[in-house]
Design a protein around this nucleic acid. Structure first.
Length: 410
RNA sequence: GCCUGGGUAGGGUAGCUGGACAUCCUAUGGGACUGUGGAUCCCACGACUCGGGUUCGACCCCCGACCCGGGCCCCA
């Protein structure tokens, strides 16, 4: 016999865990729906080009790809922003703006599995499409924070704006810019200095760059303004922060955030949890422009993705326990018991024996699966048109009609 | 891709500087017990991750693969 295991980096979810996941999911759904977002679903696989066109080098190596029978290069989606933007271009370009969408689906990346990192993982995210206003950025960030706090997760929010650092390195090639952003993101100052020397970057640029990334604290923006001179991006960023202040959202300004995907253009943010190991980022997002790459008009958008599995690691969902009922019967009442169970199940959760167990063993089983109540249907009960209702905790038992029994557990 | 620790029934474990049938607990199914559960006892079930090598003989030693955990890189 050949034993077949789960593919590496994937998981099975058992009923208890699924219950917890569903309960968190429904809290998230409740929040985004109240904020006016509508759900979309995109295919599990797409044309590979959708992801390679602009997501950057990093993600290309970790995509699951395959050739279909028509010799097309396909890919299991590694993220959902690009697919949702593709969907937007196909279906929502002429709809009223802004277009507010959310999704909850699995993504795939070929990476080394670790705590909080899997090859199949779930993302819950939103995209607010069509607005370039700071109000849009502020709404999206606030929503992310709100979602996490709605399930009891405390995170540390870091916000940056790529256009500020970009403005001083824009004279360099895109590849050089990208490399620099990565070093900045890693906070690898030595590596950054070495690289800047290697490409012969002007010393004025280096000086500005290093003073920018060393900024922190409340006056970060004011100081940055002195270094870069006036930029239109500053106003938008400043207004975003003002709004967050007004909404009581706590944050840290961090101009060094770069993000792993290359399509972000302006505001970027990340939320970390200190309750995880190395994989401590539970949410990431920002503003970007992607639609023109998929044949649409250039459309400013802002969105984020929450690492659902990482949230599950942190929060301990408590599920409301519904009372469970077990219907016990005898050989001569089995048929009637099944009929009654079918009727009861229109209203409440009922379990019953399907192993042809003896009466005593049925009670034993009801006990071991933690039933709260047992309904007993024997010849006596059947003749009286009632059913015995036994409380498994107290051991007390009484004779009730079916309707009374339903009422008792609801 | 790199570094590091680890894999014995469904879960938890003992054993191994090489020696006969691999220990115990728990879970599950059945019985003691054909209308009343939780206890007890009995029975059944069920494992050395896989493949090579060394050896008269490998769960144990060596090599490789696979998988899991932790870290790096990257990211959610």
């Amino acid at each position: 016999m050949v034993r077949i295991d789960r593919p590496r980096g994937t998981r099975d979810f058992l009923p208890d865990e699924m219950g917890e996941r569903r309960s968190i999911e429904s809290v998230f759904r409740g929040v985004v729906e109240r904020w006016g977002y509508g759900e979309v679903k995109t295919p599990t696989f797409e044309n590979l080009d959708l992801f390679t066109i602009k997501s950057g080098e990093g993600i290309s190596d970790e995509i699951y790809t395959f050739m279909d029978k028509g010799e097309r290069q396909m890919a299991l989606r590694p993220e959902l922003t690009a697919p949702v933007m593709r969907l937007y271009v196909e279906s929502f370009q002429v709809s009223a703006k802004p277009c507010k969408l959310f999704y909850f689906d699995n993504c795939f990346r070929y990476e080394r599995p670790q705590k909080g990192r899997f090859r199949e993982f779930w993302q819950f995210g939103v995209e607010l499409i069509g607005s370039s206003q700071p109000e849009a950025d502020a709404e999206v960030i606030t929503l992310a924070v709100e979602m996490l706090s709605s399930v009891g997760v405390k995170g540390e929010l870091h916000i940056g704006d790529l256009s500020i650092i970009r403005s001083i390195i824009e004279e360099l090639s895109p590849a050089q810019q990208s490399r620099i952003m990565r070093l900045v993101d890693k906070k690898d100052d030595a590596g950054l200095e070495y690289y800047l020397g290697e490409i012969n970057a002007p010393s004025a640029l280096c000086e500005k760059l290093f003073s920018l990334i060393s900024l922190s604290g409340r006056d970060t923006l004011k100081e940055a303004l002195k270094i870069t001179g006036d930029l239109p991006e500053f106003d938008r960023f400043r207004r975003t922060l003002e709004l967050l202040d007004a909404l009581d959202v706590e944050y840290t300004v961090d101009l060094g955030i770069a993000r792993g995907l290359d399509y972000y253009t302006g505001m970027v943010f990340e939320i970390y949890s200190n309750q995880l190991g190395a994989q401590n980022q539970i949410c990431g997002g920002g503003s970007y422009k992607l639609t023109h790459l998929f044949g649409g008009k250039e459309t400013p958008s802002t969105g984020f993705g929450i690492g659902f599995d990482r949230v599950m690691e942190i929060c301990k969902p408590r599920r409301p326990k519904t009372p469970s009922l077990y219907l016990a019967s005898f050989d001569d009442t089995r048929t009637d018991a099944m009929k009654i169970a079918k009727k009861l199940r229109k209203h409440i959760k009922v379990d019953m024996d399907v192993m042809n167990r003896r009466f005593k063993d049925q009670l034993k089983h009801a006990n071991s699966v933690g039933s709260d109540f047992v309904l007993i249907l024997g010849k006596n009960e059947l003749e009286s048109g009632k059913i015995a209702f036994k409380n498994m905790e107290s051991g007390e038992q009484e004779l009730l009609t079916i309707d009374e029994a339903i009422e008792r557990v609801q």
